[in-house]
Every structure is written in C-alpha cells, then in structure tokens.
Design a protein around this nucleic acid. Structure first.
Lengths: 193, 193
DNA sequence: CGCGACGTTGATTTGCCTCAACGATTGTGG
DNA sequence: CCACAATCGTTGAGGCAAATCAACGTCGCG
C-alpha cells in the first residue's frame, strides 16, 4: 500500500527502516472517484496527501466562476493547500479528482508529531518545499515573459504524461488562456509539421 | 548592527539568547550603493541576505533584454536565489540595489553548520519558505485571473511603502505590463477620484 | 438513443503593446 | 554652480495577441 511512498521518500533522504515504517504507518489510504473533491473552498485543509495513482487539479475559482489551476498532481506528487494547512485559515482552493484516484493522507497533528520524533522527516519536507518554491518562481517568470504559444509548448514538453490526460479546458485554466485559444495554438503547431 | 535581524527572528521563533547571538555572529555586514549588484546572472549564489535598509530588485532578464521582476526586498526581507543557493547551479537571476542599502550576509556553509547546531534555525527558515510559497501561489492565481488594472491596484495597496519608492518601469516589470500602460492606469485611477 | 461535455472554427472586440515624440526631473562632470 | 545628459512620465496613433460570443460537429456515457 505504501510502497510508492517509501520509494519516493528514499529518493530524497536517507532514513532508517524503522523510521520509514513509522512515518508511513501514519498515513490513511483513500480512494477518490472522478469528479469528487478532496478539498473544497471554505473548508480547513487538515491533511497532506500523496498521490499513488490518478490525477487531481488544485485550483481557485474567482467571482465570475472562472477556474485558475495552480497545479495538477499525478502519481508521486503531494497535494495540500499549504496556506490553509499551515495558517489554519479556511481554504481558498479546491482539490478535485480528474480520474479515479488513490491517495495516502496524513493529518496535521500526526505530521507535526513525526516532525519532532523523526528529524529526517523535517528534512524531507524542507526539500520538497524548496523544490516547489523553485518551480513556482520559474512559473512566475515564464508567465511574465512568454507568449501563450510558448507556454503551451513548454507545458506539453515538460509534462507530456500529464498533458495527455487533460482537456483543452484544463490546460487553458492552467496557462491562463481560453480553451478556444488552446485549440488554435494546437492547430498552428500541427499545420507547421 | 544585528539588532534588526534579532528582532525579526524573535517575531518568528523562540530561541535562547546564546543561540541567537551565535547565529547572528555568522553574518557579515555589507553596504551596497545604488545600482550595484549583489548577484549577477551566471554567478553561483553563495549567500543568503537580510536587508537592514534600502531596497533591492530580484529579477530575470530574457533574450530580448526585458526584465521580469520576481520581487522587491526592503527592510526586514531576505534575499537570495533559492534555486542557485540550494542546487549549486549558476543563477538565472540578478539582484541589484535600487537605493543605497545595507545588508547582513551569511554563507551557505555557515548556514548549514548552524542548521545542525541550532534546530530553531531550521524552523525559522522553514517558516520563512512557507510564507514565501504561500505568497507565490497567491501571485500566480492573481496573475492568471486579474486584469492589469486590478493587479496594479492590488500591488500599491498591499505594498504602499515599496510602491512609493519605485518607478513605473519597475512596477511594470513586476506586474508584467509596459511602463506606458502603468502610466495610463494611474491616470485612469486619478481621474476617477 | 439522447444528452452533456468537449473541440473546432469564424467573426468581432478588447486589453495591452510598440513606437514615437515631448516635457520634467534628476544627476553629473567640467 | 551651471549645462548637459540620462532617466523618467505622459500622451497619441496604430497594431497585434488573445478574449468573447456564437454556431456546429463529435464523442462517450447513462
């Protein structure tokens, strides 16, 4: 059940078998069917999740009901609303399954208890959040400097295994462009080759 | 010299006087005059800095030479290129003083040694990077969902003490719009009132 | 089968950019 | 201390990237 999680952890830190076991035992397994929500705007995000399989979108919806997708999460990705999780405020984000999926969830209380008990865990999450931070910085710069065409190409090149599973609507909501325009970009690219 | 830093730290964590003293002693004081660089693209970022006074811009410049500003840093802010600092790769960012400024710098080696020795320090930086992460997420969502007008208003409302010191060119490079358009937005707002 | 979600395409509109000109302000070297 | 350069802000004209609105075909699913 936790094999994928263990493998993931060992890619990032060194940790004893006992500690690894103890940490992984704190997780609860959960199946989520397509279109179901793991988190809805207004709720308190009390978990951090590790995706075993399937696909999720983490997004905000504005006054007009338009969705802005912060990121997609597939196998081996973590999902949570860091803001709500750490500040204990109600979340402004939604997390919804785009496919039938399986996740491992850990509660805030358990995670913090294990932070104290197993210092390697603190290191793991420090590394993960540094990686996220670097990725977000790059995305901001790219959003500021590149055209929609370039961002689309970058996205499908960088995440081919995610892009293949998504609709134009979802890709548009991630890139900040309309789905009609995504369609036009694709045509432009196809006719070029 | 390190009074501002000490005050800043105590706002975020609890720490003994001795540990606080030891940590602050690892910093070097440096004056930077306006337009000078603390970091240039291509260099390895070997420091993390705490701004005592003055103002910096952290930015990327693309092929065309256009600048994209990641953030501004004034009193009480940290400056570094997390990417280069943690991965040891050459930086893609520039850090330049917009005013005559004073900073406290700590080297990577010293910082990591103190991580080991003083666990509270690890906590401090975990808290700081969580805050940064949350801010970046919000910024991505706002860049995706809001018009230039709204983003401008948000910016000057959120950071009045920074905005007042900046030129339209710098604000534009942060918001991803031309400085001419910043000017037009300002006129629109002024004539409204 | 029929419905709803999606992709495509066209027509029109709009938000913002680019280029260019000019005045105001700041800074600097003689 | 003044003169000149550099930098900045403003404004206009024109253009382009991308949004919006609308129509239609297709596909998968209950």
């Amino acid at each position: 059940m936790t094999a994928a999680l263990k493998e993931h952890i060992l890619k990032h830190i060194q940790i004893s078998d006992e500690h690894l076991e103890e940490f992984c035992n704190a997780f609860t397994f959960q199946k989520i069917i397509k279109k179901e929500f793991l988190l809805k705007e207004g709720e308190h995000c009390k978990f951090e999740g590790f995706v075993i399989n399937g696909c999720f979108k983490v997004y905000h919806s504005d006054q007009k009901g338009t969705e802005q997708i912060l990121y997609f999460a597939i196998e081996d990705w973590w999902i949570t609303d860091v803001d709500s999780f750490t500040t204990l405020k109600p979340s402004q984000l939604n997390i919804q399954a785009l496919e039938n999926s399986e996740v491992l969830l850990i509660s805030k209380a358990d995670k913090e208890a294990l932070y104290q008990k197993i210092p390697e865990i603190e290191k793991l999450f420090r590394i993960m959040s540094q990686k996220t931070l670097i990725a977000l910085q790059r995305r901001i710069i790219e959003n500021l400097s590149k055209t929609a065409d370039q961002r689309y190409v970058d996205f499908i090149t960088k995440y081919p295994q995610i892009a293949g599973r998504l609709t134009n609507i979802q890709i548009g909501a991630y890139l900040g462009i309309s789905h009609e325009f995504v369609s036009r970009i694709r045509r432009k690219i196809v006719t070029k080759n």
